[in-house]
Write a protein that binds this DNA or RNA. Structure first.
Lengths: 114, 114
DNA sequence: TAAATATATTGATATATGTTCATATATAGA
DNA sequence: TCTATATATGAACATATATCAATATATTTA
C-alpha cells in the first residue's frame, strides 16, 4: 500500500526556505557562525569577517527580518547575537552531514545516473 | 579578556553554504522534505510537487552534486532518497527554530533598531 | 531494431541577490 | 547646538539562479 506522503504547507515552506536562504551565503553564514559564539557589535563583525560596513548592515537587516539574530543597543553601538540555540544546532547538523558525506565518497558512483 | 572567536575555514564555509543554499529554494526544499519521508522516483516527485520534469531533474542534479540525495536505478526509473539522517535533522532544527521565533513575538521590538 | 517511456542536459530568459556608493539616522561628547 | 562616531537605508549594477522548451540519453518492450 502506498504510504501517505506529507507536503510542507506553503507558509511553513516559505519560512523554512527563507531561513535556509539566509544561511546560504558565505558572508551571512560567517556572520551567523560568529554570533553563535559571542555577541558582537557591527564594527567588530566588519573587521572579523573582512567586509564593508554597508554590506554587513544589509546582511544583518536580512538576518533580523527573519529573526535569525537579535540585537540590543548600547550607547553608540548595536550588539547582535543569534536568536536561539537552534541556529547553532543548524550549523552542527550541517557540519555533521558534511562529515558523513566526506566519509562516504566510495559509496557514491562518480558517473552520471543515466 | 577578549575570548577567541572562531572563523569558518573557506572550504568548509563553501560546503556549508552550498548545503543551505540547496535547501533555500521552495521547490528543492519540498523535494528534499518528501525524500526525508520516502524513496521516490522522478515522475512521482514531479506529480507530488507539481512542477515540470525538466525543473525537477535540474533540482535533483543540484541535490546530487552536493550529496544531499542519493539515487538508484530500477529499470526505467531512478529512485531518489536523502543521503543521510542529518538531512532530516536539518529540517527538524529549522522547524524548531521557527516555532521558537513564533512563540517569542512579544520579545522582539517591532520598530527599527536605529 | 523500432517505438515508448523515464530521466538528463542544453540553451535561453526573466527574476532574485550580493555588493558598492552615497546618504540618512541615531547617539555621545564638547 | 555642532561634530564625531556607529549603524542603517536606498539606488544602481553585475552576477547568480529558477524555470521553460527542446533535445539527448538510457532502458524496456514489441
Amino acid at each position: 500500500m502506498p504510504q501517505q506522503i506529507d507536503l510542507l504547507d506553503s507558509e511553513i515552506l516559505n519560512d523554512i526556505t527563507n531561513t535556509f536562504k539566509a544561511l546560504g551565503d558565505n558572508t551571512r553564514a560567517q556572520i551567523v557562525y560568529l554570533l553563535t559564539q559571542e555577541e558582537l557589535n557591527v564594527n567588530t563583525i566588519c573587521q572579523t569577517v573582512g567586509v564593508s560596513q554597508s554590506t554587513v548592515s544589509h546582511h544583518l537587516a536580512k538576518l533580523r527580518n527573519i529573526r535569525l539574530v537579535k540585537y540590543r543597543r548600547q550607547g553608540n553601538q548595536i550588539f547582535y547575537s543569534v536568536d536561539d540555540s537552534h541556529v547553532a544546532a543548524l550549523f552542527r547538523e550541517a557540519l555533521w552531514h558534511l562529515d558523513h558525506v566526506r566519509q562516504n565518497i566510495p559509496d557514491y558512483p562518480g558517473s552520471h545516473p543515466v
